[in-house]
């Protein structure tokens, strides 16, 4: 019997090590029945994208608390596009001022979640917006 399962990558781009939120999310996703790939801290966009491709994830959740989100999040989207993998959904979270949201949306980040967002709300968004992707060949 076919049994599709959503695969999610939780990744921390940039140099900050504030992984409290990322780890809580990774755990929450596991407890919600998803398969979660965690990258650890201090990842370059290149490392994140390569891992996402090898792991065939449907969603990448980026967490950044260093203020470099405007540089790093769009870079991940751009690299995915270059690899022909822009069907992978990218969302972001961390310390992100409201005024930056639009910039991130414009650069292909599908949703932004800041501290205080109930975890269930994130899950709801995923269930409504992320599907296992179409066949590749």
């Amino acid at each position: 019997m076919a049994n599709r399962k959503l695969r999610i990558m939780v990744a921390k781009p940039g140099l900050d090590g504030h992984d409290r939120g990322a780890r809580i999310l990774a755990r929450f996703f596991r407890d919600s029945g998803y398969e979660v790939i965690y990258t650890g801290c201090h990842q370059t966009p290149e490392q994140i994208v390569e891992a996402a491709l090898q792991e065939d994830v449907d969603l990448i959740g980026l967490s950044c608390l260093s203020g470099a989100h405007k540089e790093l999040f769009p870079k991940v989207v751009k690299l995915l596009k270059e690899k022909g993998a822009d069907d992978i959904v990218v969302i972001g979270g961390g310390i992100i001022p409201e005024q930056d949201f639009q910039y991130l949306y414009d650069h292909g980040i599908k949703a932004v979640f800041t501290p205080g967002t109930p975890l269930e709300e994130i899950k709801k968004w995923i269930d409504e917006n992320v599907k296992v992707r179409e066949e590749l060949v």
Partner: peptide, 9 residues
Amino acid sequence: TGGALLGDR
């Protein structure tokens, strides 16, 4: 839960 945390990588 049927979920998994794949942390080896």
